[in-house]
Design a protein around this nucleic acid. Sequence first.
DNA 1: GTCTATATTGTGATAGAC
DNA 2: GTCTATCACAATATAGAC
Lengths: 221, 221
Amino acid sequence: MNDRAGPKRPGAQNARDGDTELRILDAARRVFIRRGTAGARMQEIAAEAGVNQALLHYYFRSKDRLAATVFAEAAFRVVPAIADLLGSSATIEEKVERFVHLYIDAVRQSPFLPGYLVAELHQQPKRLTAMLEAAGPGARAAVGTIRRKLGRQLRDAAAAGTIRPIAPEQFFVNMIALCVIPFLARPLLGALLGMDARAFDDFLDQRRAELPGFIIRGLRS
Amino acid sequence: MNDRAGPKRPGAQNARDGDTELRILDAARRVFIRRGTAGARMQEIAAEAGVNQALLHYYFRSKDRLAATVFAEAAFRVVPAIADLLGSSATIEEKVERFVHLYIDAVRQSPFLPGYLVAELHQQPKRLTAMLEAAGPGARAAVGTIRRKLGRQLRDAAAAGTIRPIAPEQFFVNMIALCVIPFLARPLLGALLGMDARAFDDFLDQRRAELPGFIIRGLRS
DNA sequence: GTCTATATTGTGATAGAC
DNA sequence: GTCTATCACAATATAGAC
């Protein structure tokens, strides 16, 4: 993916079970996600990967590169599926329902990802900009295409009287907001409402079921 | 509020303009909010307050205490107004409209607060728990009271056929989500959609106007 | 109360043996 | 490729003069 100066991988064969680089990356993911880039310690990552600190630098050269790798991976994990869905030819109602299910089911697998991403985006907004430029003009172009297509669909539906007029950005942001909020508010829900893991799970199930209807009624005229 | 071992304030009279402690706290707020607790540097805070690093320790003893002070202040800034509103005797429709306006207008004054809070909550979930315990049982009791009252109101409205049945937690979380998301997603909106300060402002105005209707229609049966 | 050192530890990164 | 040892500097915190 990105040029790593470090190792040439001929017939990499390790003392331990699998691929060391991967074990390091896995550990880095976990540590960065829960501590944030600034709060993470190379030592903690090394310990969690079962190797020593020097190896992290051997494979990833610096903390900053390792952090950038983890961030880029995380940022682009959910995007493709969402983009496909929103750009598809399904009706608005279908898109809403599928989006809610797709998103909640996906993020449930990594419930701390949204908190991590919001924190990073907030604390280092330039990283994303840099990443997008590095990704070339294709990325932004793709966003623009989907936005126009979705906007057209929403206009047509409004003209047909199915829904009220709404800007595609507002529509999209509304869906994201309603789906992602439980994960961002997880600590609050726990502390304030005494919600434990089980209760949180029920809360998510309920949302998954109710949200599509709530959104679609909100769109109707 | 919390016991600071440091200064006894008899007739504090400074070389500079105003109260030094306040200037430090202001600077700390700004720095912690944009860098996060882990990423903030005492040196940067000192520079931004126009004093030297030793004074920070004189007034706040340690970075951790300073961070805790800033966090507690931030966490309890918006809460009281929201609690009053939700516990009031207004109708659901009135509450929705007032909440949206109140919340967006308030957070607009400090647009980086939500990102900071989410980051801190995510990276140090224990801080909130500790704070709540320190605040005594009154805090949680107040939450419980409001939740029950709001729940009753929602049940009554549902029984009367005005709205669909909905749990008070879901109702509340929906409103928060839709109001707070623009601030959390601000970096994304900028990078992906090319939204500048002006466009973001328009985006907020549009939401402020459309959100109440969207939510209320979503609640209706 | 406020400053200039300075102590002390934490932390990313490198050298070099194996 | 992986380790141990260590460097170099960043960062919190304290001592003590004014």
